[in-house]
Amino acid sequence: LVRYRTISKIPQITLNFVDLKGDPFLASPTSDREIIAPKIKERTHNVTEKVTQVLSLGADVLPEYKLQAPRIHRWTILHYSPFKAVWDWLILLLVIYTAVFTPYSAAFLLKETEEGPPATECGYACQPLAVVDLIVDIMFIVDILINFRTTYVNANEEVVSHPGRIAVHYFKGWFLIDMVAAIPFDLLIFGSGSEELIGLLKTARLLRLVRVARKLDRYSEYGAAVLFLLMCTFALIAHWLACIWYAIGNMEQPHMDSRIGWLHNLGDQIGKPYNSSGLGGPSIKDKYVTALYFTFSSLTSVGFGNVSPNTNSEKIFSICVMLIGSLMYASIFGNVSAIIQRLYSGTARYHTQMLRVREFIRFHQIPNPLRQRLEEYFQHAWSYTNGIDMNAVLKGFPECLQADICLHLNRSLLQHCKPFRGATKGCLRALAMKFKTTHAPPGDTLVHAGDLLTALYFISRGSIEILRGDVVVAILGKNDIFGEPLNLYARPGKSNGDVRALTYCDLHKIHR
């Protein structure tokens, strides 16, 4: 019993810090008490220290592992850092350059016999395009090294910054494609005289377009951006097909006994025919423009016929181009109408809503002055909100995010209106959640004399007048207030005048 009563005193000691020596009952000389009392004092002292730490809000209350900052290894790049964003855009520009100039170089340097010394005699450094290609190869190699040090988000939505895990993730992902696209074939085969082989191998750079397509997928929600990307894709495919079309004609031209190829026909049409040795002929500019003209006309199913396939190889390629053109029509131009419709969806919704308003007016036989006010209010409210119901949009977000959005939407009023000066951010967040926005066209009466005042109004834009009878008592403008002081009276009061809008007004109100 003594032991039980001794232990039962522990909660009292913990909360009230009572010393055991003052209790005459606990001072009985028993061996059990002498053993338990020192333990009680020690526990009391420890609990006292913990309570003191909690009340003082000291940093040592938290466990040590929670006080440590997340460790980022040296030379690790955050995937959302500004440097990584700028670097990704730079790589994107280099990939676009590669997609345009690599097929052009591979096709127009394929057994090209233009006048001038061969590239091997001039030297590697004197070729501007080769120098640019070398810079692109170096940048792609540097990009691989950067990807080995860039964080990523795993399946659990955690940012991984450990170098080993980053390397394994990159090896399992895009490393092989990036490595093949970054191989400097110019340096590996330079001086061997195989410019045709170098041009063909350099087309491996186009593998990076797969990554670019995935990154550009984030802009699919913007109709104008999608339309622009589709047109660029169409032009890029036409450019690639033009390079292939020229390569076919250029390879067949020296081996044909009869002059029936499209390059021969082009030379005869523009007065620059090929001679018996295969030299001469149109310039590279004429060849490229004509090839691009043929691919565009074939892809769009126009086909004027002034550039036509004559050999079997050219006919087979033309059939493939027609098939590609039909697929592009289905996948690209078939979506253009939907994209344009999405661009004008706001206008369509406006006309639909206006039609419903006019049908309501016609069905209920609203008189002319009231009908005009109804239409003007709808037009003004639509121009202010673009038909978007803010309350319906915010309803799907958590309250903390709703408060931040409301604070942002009402920031101008909260910053410049005098009653809100000096208020804490928590108070402003709470008030912003209570605001209701209303609009009024010129001549609209917001409050009639004798109406119950259940709200306090803040003028965000425009001006109003307060009338008693036919006498203008006051004219209020931006950041002015009218209405009933909230919670100042037990019952809502009545208006002693009319409140009429002089201009288009936007008002925020808080109800009782």
Rank of each mutant, 00 (worst) to 15 (best):
E64W: 11
R71M: 11
I72C: 06
I77D: 01
L78H: 04
L78R: 09
H79N: 02
H79S: 01
D88Q: 01
L93I: 12
T98Y: 01
V100T: 01
P103T: 04
L109H: 15
E112P: 14
E114G: 14
E115M: 04
E115N: 03
Y124D: 01
A125W: 15
C126S: 01
C126Q: 03
L129D: 03
D137Q: 11
I138G: 02
I138Q: 01
M139S: 07
I141A: 09
I146S: 01
T150Y: 01
N154V: 11
N154Y: 05
A155W: 09
A155T: 14
V159H: 07
G164S: 10
R165T: 08
A167N: 01
Y170M: 01
G173A: 04
L176K: 04
I177G: 01
V180Y: 01
D186V: 09
L187G: 12
L188W: 06
F190T: 13
F190A: 14
S192G: 10
I198S: 05
G199N: 09
L200S: 04
L200D: 01
R205A: 04
L207A: 14
R208C: 12
R211E: 06
R214I: 03
L216T: 04
D217M: 08
Y219Q: 08
E221Q: 13
G223T: 09
G223A: 08
A225S: 06
V226D: 10
V226L: 12
F228P: 03
L230T: 04
L236P: 01
W240C: 01
W240P: 01
A247I: 09
A247K: 03
I248C: 01
L263H: 01
Q269R: 03
I270F: 03
S276H: 09
S277A: 06
L292K: 01
L292V: 01
F294D: 01
T295G: 01
T295E: 01
F296D: 01
G303H: 03
G303D: 01
G305C: 11
S308V: 04
S313R: 04
L323H: 01
G325T: 01
M328P: 01
A330S: 01
I339V: 07
I339R: 03
I339Q: 04
R342P: 04
S345G: 05
T347E: 12
R349F: 07
Y350G: 01
H351L: 03
H351P: 03
R356L: 10
R358N: 07
R358H: 15
L370E: 01
R371G: 07
R373N: 04
S383N: 10
I388C: 13
K395Y: 09
G396N: 07
C400S: 04
A403Y: 01
N410V: 07
N410Y: 07
S412T: 13
S412V: 09
L414S: 01
A432L: 06
A432Y: 03
M433A: 04
G443Q: 03
T445N: 04
